[in-house]
Structure formats: C-alpha cells, structure tokens
Design a protein around this nucleic acid. Structure first.
Length: 397
DNA sequence: TCTGGGGTCCTAGGACCC
DNA sequence: TCTGGGGTCCTAGGACCC
C-alpha cells in the first residue's frame, strides 16, 4: 500500500508573520527579515518582491543590502513565529490523524488508512487546509501530496507559492525526472558539486543507471541517491521524538578577545540550556563548547559527565574547564572570537528520584527549583549569577 | 562580500575491554 | 617480540535542513 503524505509549507513565513504583527509593514513590498541593515546576520526570509532582486534566505544581510538597497530590513520576534506555528499545527490536526511539524513553517500530514474516505485524490482536503490556514492566521501556504515524505515535499516546492500539487502513486518517476539533483533533500551544495564534477546534474540521468553503474561512478552514496531518484522513502510519519540536543549560541556584534566576557556569556547560555532541559524533563550526559574564530574556523570541545544532569552548575563546571584552553588556542592563532555557544547532548529522561543523592546536590536542586519558579513568573533575567550581572554593568558603563 | 541559530545525522580515529 | 577482531564509548569535525 502506497503512503499518502501531505506536506504543508507556509509561504515567506517569517516575512508574513512580521506583517501581521506590524501593520506599518503591511504595505512594504520590499521586506527582508533577519536583522537590521548593519547586522552580522543572514537573511531569514525575504518577501517575494525582494526575491526578484536576488535576495535569498541564508544570504548575508550585507549582500542583501547591496542587491536591494530600497528594502526594509527588520529583525523578527521568535515568540510571534512560535505562536503562528502553533495555530497552524492546530488547523492541521483537525484534518489528519497524524501531524508532524518539521520546523516552524512546515508540517507533514499522514493520511494512511483514509483510503475509503478519500479514494482517489487528496486535493479537496488540501484546499480545505489551505482555506482554513488562510482564514485563521492570514497566512498563505503551498501544499504537496505524495507517496512519501520526500515526494510530498518536492511537490510543495513545485507548487510554490500558494499552489497545490498532487503526485499520485505511479507518477513519481515522471515527476522526479524533471528535477535537478540539487533539488533533492539531502543533496546540499557539496554533494551537488561532486555529482556535477562526475557529469551528473539531472535526476533523469540517475534514473537511467543501474545501482551497480551508479555505484562505480559515485561510490557508496549510490544506494541512497538511487532510492531518492526513484521517489522511494519513508511513507509513514514517525511521531515527534524527544530532542537529541539543546543549545544556545550567538555571534557577537564584534569579535572578542576578552575571556571574562566570554565566560559571562557562557554562564547565561548554560542557564538557558539547563532550564530547557528541566522544562522537558531531560538530563544531559555531555556538554559541548563551541567557538568560532575571526577567520570563521569553528572548533568544538566536549566533555562527558560521570553523571547526567540538568543543573546549571554541573554543566558549567565542565565548560569552565574547556573554555580557557580553547580560548588560548584562538590567541595562539592570533584570532578573536566571533561566535560562542553551549550545547547539551546525550540526552535521556530525568530519573524521578535518587535516594542516595549527596546532600549538597539535593540542596542545589532545591535552589534551582526556587530560581525556576521566580523565572517562570518574572522572566529568565529576573535571576542572574553575580558574575553576569557585573559584566552587564560593565557593558553599560 | 561576508558569512545566524536551532537542530539532525554521519564519519573517522582512538581508547578500552573481552 | 609481535600481535587478532569485534564491540562500545568518546571526541572532533562536517554536511545538511529550515
């Protein structure tokens, strides 16, 4: 039995959410979301009018400014995106038994088992989904329908913007034949360039080869590419799994050579990461420090703990040992620090209660709970370690 | 020209154990 | 003195996605 998957993709999501929230942007055709003109960021999303100037998501803001100087540049609000995304998810859940959000602005619906309800086509359902989303959020979307996740996704790409596209069982081969290999999910710039250097650019070329021929040409990745080119892929949706990692990172407005400033930032990030872990009922076995040097070289240093934890102090303890040597490495290379981040990985569910826990740790846990209560009420920054307070005051003066 | 922030998954080498 | 093979865990880096 072929799968029946629908992929719903919001059009210019970040731009349109900003428009709904800020009426003064409603009639600004050239709108770029991601950061102000002088920011060190990249474009998150550009209005369709701005895209005509060549502005694309992922492009440095500075480059977008040069391509489209007339555009208005704004920094969006993550919370607004999250709220809009939640509403969309609710709409989707009314139409299909299984819904999986792949990110804030796209979701998959699984219609397995609805063959009697919709024997031939899912297009009428797609129309209803599109209308409901439009009515309840004011946002437009594109919808693809296919026998696997991948085909549904490619169909919605094909339908953009504001379109519907259904690829029925048996049509996959023909639909995919018209695409370039770079359009396939999982084929990024590197792999696309490698394939091109071997003479492969179109899906149709791969479809003509046997797996053995392809394998001789491109090596061990042949099997996967062959499956993709034929539209084979997971035909059912796995429900959302718990997070595999939690992280916070930032690119500094200016490169830093100040170890104490970096440590202050790290303390704040660890606080946010640990709060996330507690919120999700998880503990982390491993912490990772991430630094990016001025020349964009990125290094990570990690440490696995004896005992998994969700406590700021225990995570920070490990990071405090990792930071100085990693910082010195940058100094030796005569580089400043451009980006710093902390992440927790090796996650597992928090154990309910440890009767043999050392008393000091029990006290730490109680203190942490008290801090969480205050922060729930007054915001994360209502409670701050003295270290970060001091550096905040220094920054202000 | 200057490259975000949140993730996932994969690879490869080394330590260690049996 | 020279030396196996498999499994697991850990670390570091990188490709990729939105």
């Amino acid at each position: 039995m072929a799968g029946r998957i629908m992929h719903v993709d919001l059009d210019a999501f970040f731009v349109e959410v900003c428009r709904r929230r800020r009426p003064e942007l409603r009639d600004v055709p050239l709108l770029v979301v991601g950061g102000r003109r002088d920011s060190r960021g990249v474009v998150q999303s550009a209005s369709y009018d701005a895209r005509r100037f060549g502005v694309r998501s992922g492009m440095p803001i500075a480059q977008a400014v040069r391509l489209c100087p007339e555009a208005t540049f704004v920094q969006g609000t993550f919370d607004h995106y999250r709220q809009a995304s939640r509403t969309v998810r609710q709409v989707l859940s009314r139409h299909a038994p299984t819904v999986v959000m792949a990110s804030l602005d796209e979701g998959y619906l699984d219609f397995a088992g609805t063959e009697r309800l919709y024997p031939v086509s899912l297009l009428p359902v797609a129309e209803a989904v599109r209308d409901d989303i439009r009515r309840e959020t004011g946002l437009d979307c594109s919808i693809g329908i296919g026998t696997s996740r991948m085909v549904a996704k490619l169909a919605s790409d094909f339908a953009k913007p504001r379109g519907l596209c259904e690829v029925r069982a048996g049509w996959e081969h023909g639909f995919l034949a018209g695409l370039s290999l770079a359009a396939l999910p999982g084929i990024g710039p590197k792999e696309a360039a490698r394939l091109k250097s071997l003479g492969l650019q179109e899906v149709a070329q791969v479809q003509c080869l046997s797996e053995e021929q392809l394998s001789r040409l491109i090596g061990p990745s042949a099997r996967l590419l062959m499956r993709r080119a034929r539209g084979m892929g997971s035909a059912t949706l796995r429900p959302d799994r718990p997070a595999r990692s939690v992280s916070r990172e930032t690119t500094l407005p200016r490169d830093s050579r100040d170890l104490r400033q970096l440590e202050g930032l790290l303390i704040r990030f660890v606080g946010l990461v640990a709060a996330d872990l507690r919120d999700q009922g998880l503990v982390a076995r491993t912490v990772v420090l991430k630094l990016r040097h001025s020349d964009f070289r990125t290094v990570t240093r990690r440490r696995t703990l004896d005992c998994p934890t969700d406590l700021d102090q225990e995570l920070m303890g490990a990071l405090k040992q990792l930071l100085p040597p990693a910082f010195q490495e940058a100094v030796r290379r005569r580089q400043g620090i451009r980006l710093i981040g902390a992440s927790a990985t090796g996650l597992e569910p928090a154990a309910p209660l440890d009767l043999f826990e050392p008393e000091a740790r029990t006290r730490l846990r109680a203190l942490t709970r008290a801090v969480d209560v205050v922060r729930d009420r007054y915001g994360f920054d209502a409670v701050q370690p003295a270290r970060t307070l001091k550096s905040a005051r220094r920054r202000r003066s």
